[in-house]
Design a protein around this nucleic acid. Structure first.
Lengths: 139, 139
DNA sequence: TCAAGAAATAAGAATTATTCTAAACTGCGG
DNA sequence: CCGCAGTTTAGAATAATTCTTATTTCTTGA
């Protein structure tokens, strides 16, 4: 008799209303136990395979979207034809290095935007994102 | 003898170093003579067909990218799997209505952002974009 | 005005990321 | 331990975009 304490990932999933299945728990571990990541579905699938987690690519996509819906992840779209998922769900922004196709967080604290018009009637703001696109320093 | 003055679109293309071919001139007219548009390749192809311009989808894609490279257009990426091209190349930002999949310009004047960190070394800022994502007003 | 070479276009195949489908599997309440 | 709703899977399907190759069209210079 050893009443195992449920691992943290299992609790996070339950709180989010998602059944803690084998693959969701495994993916949650990869994602949520290493903060500050920006990862594509293919990359996560690769990491899962590398970690000997048997999970299909379709499930990786499903899971990423479910996590996003549950507020565990944030989807970031900066390149045509590819989505990144950000494990940082607090208010923040991004640098995007176009040469390396790499996202970098810009902490949300201390950033102030003034002069924005109010949204058109019938709509309200869901999220405000700043993307600072970077290229190689030409000098 | 009637020494036709070259239409404006032809001049714009020449300035940009692009040969004024039949299809480029036609697409330039559709795009540049109606300011403030946000259009996808498929949409532009549709408009061209509607205007009885015979042009292939591949050429529409090529042309949009060439125009973007030449600074006549700006590419805006807000949705996974689809690119918009913006005929407004002045400094400005966007509302994105997620329900209608529609972009709206936010004039760049009077918008001030403070508190941004400087870019990582080896890189420099190519463009700064603000995207304000909108959803239906829930009340 | 014409010919030749360079550049551009078109049609369809190919690619890439993602979503869908239908069947097999599994966590969980009873 | 049963059963079923919710999940997962493999592979097919889709959507946007890019590539390939042959053909066509600009431009230049004789």
């Amino acid at each position: 008799m050893k009443p195992e304490a449920p691992p943290k990932a299992v609790l996070r999933l339950r709180e989010a209303g998602l059944r803690p299945t084998r693959q969701r728990v495994a993916l949650a571990r990869l994602l949520l136990e290493n903060g500050g990541r920006h990862i594509t579905a293919e990359q996560l699938h690769g990491e899962a395979r590398a970690a000997a987690i048997r999970v299909s690519l379709a499930t990786v996509y499903n899971t990423l979207h479910q996590f996003t819906g549950a507020g565990l992840l944030r989807e970031v779209v900066v390149e045509p034809g590819r989505s990144y998922f950000d494990t940082n769900t607090t208010e923040h922004h991004h640098f995007f290095d176009e040469a390396k196709s790499e996202l970098l967080d810009i902490g949300g604290d201390g950033i102030v935007i003034s002069g924005l018009p109010r949204p058109p009637s019938g709509t309200e703001v869901r999220r405000l994102e700043i993307i600072v696109r970077l290229g190689p320093d030409r000098h």
